[in-house]
């Protein structure tokens, strides 16, 4: 565990809290893409199926392979799952009337189908768990596309929404640094599937980061895109 990895995880965790705080404080989820949030629940669900493995080890008192890192990962995985499901739940219950569904027009099959095909072809091992893990990595890389499309459609984002997007994009950028660090310091560390997907994911945020920093520098509350 290096400083980049832990910062990335905390930034990711912060993104959930920023979004939940925004929704609770303003009683609105305006400007937030439900489709992106739904994709994140799918991403975490497919990726963290190994939680059952950890659960299995715990209820059989098989603690030999449970390390501090396992406990940290397990704790964070449960938090990420709970937070993403809670966000989707809020957007479909008490905040449904404020949801930007009419402008959230991205067709999810356009990312789901290619990710599924890629996961079936390019994976480390042709097993169900491994394919679902790979699918989640590919899907996470592009899951922000409905959100970006909504942002372009709207032309601007309020302060908390843009902080949220910065946290989501920034976390993967920090993971890139973490991978470089691990590649340099750990003799056999290699995970090209995550590296390529992580690079694509970070690159998708490129424009957004630019406008975010322009906004921060100019001290505006809202992030405005050029028309």
């Amino acid at each position: 565990m290096n400083i980049f990895r832990i910062s990335a995880d905390l930034l990711h965790l912060a993104s959930f809290f920023i979004l939940i705080f925004k929704m609770k404080a303003t009683k609105s989820c305006k400007g937030i893409s439900f489709k992106t949030q739904l994709m994140y629940t799918l991403v975490f669900t497919c990726r963290y199926l190994d939680l059952f493995h950890v659960l299995g080890m715990m209820i059989t008192f098989n603690f030999a392979h449970i390390t501090g890192l396992t406990l940290y990962n397990t704790f964070m995985k449960i938090l990420f799952l709970a937070a993403s499901y809670y966000i989707v739940y809020l957007m479909r219950t008490e905040l449904k009337s404020t949801s930007d569904d009419a402008r959230d027009t991205f067709v999810l099959w356009h990312i789901l189908a290619p990710c599924a095909v890629l996961a079936l072809i390019f994976n480390a091992q042709f097993t169900i768990l491994e394919i679902l893990w790979t699918f989640s990595i590919y899907l996470e890389a592009v899951a922000v596309m409905p959100q970006l499309m909504l942002l372009i459609e709207t032309g601007e984002a309020d302060s908390l929404s843009s902080h949220y997007m910065f946290a989501v994009g920034g976390y993967r950028a920090l993971y890139l640094v973490n991978w470089v660090y691990r590649y340099a310091t750990e003799p056999y560390y290699s995970n090209w599937i995550a590296w390529i997907a992580g690079f694509v994911q970070t690159a998708l945020f490129g424009d957004f980061f630019y406008y975010y920093f322009v906004k921060i520098m100019s001290g505006d509350a809202a992030l405005k895109l050029p028309t």
Binding site: R5, H12, Q125, W133, Y188, Y189, S190
Partner: peptide, 10 residues
Amino acid sequence: PGVIYTHDEL
């Protein structure tokens, strides 16, 4: 070490 494949990240 053969294929070193890490699922130790989030």
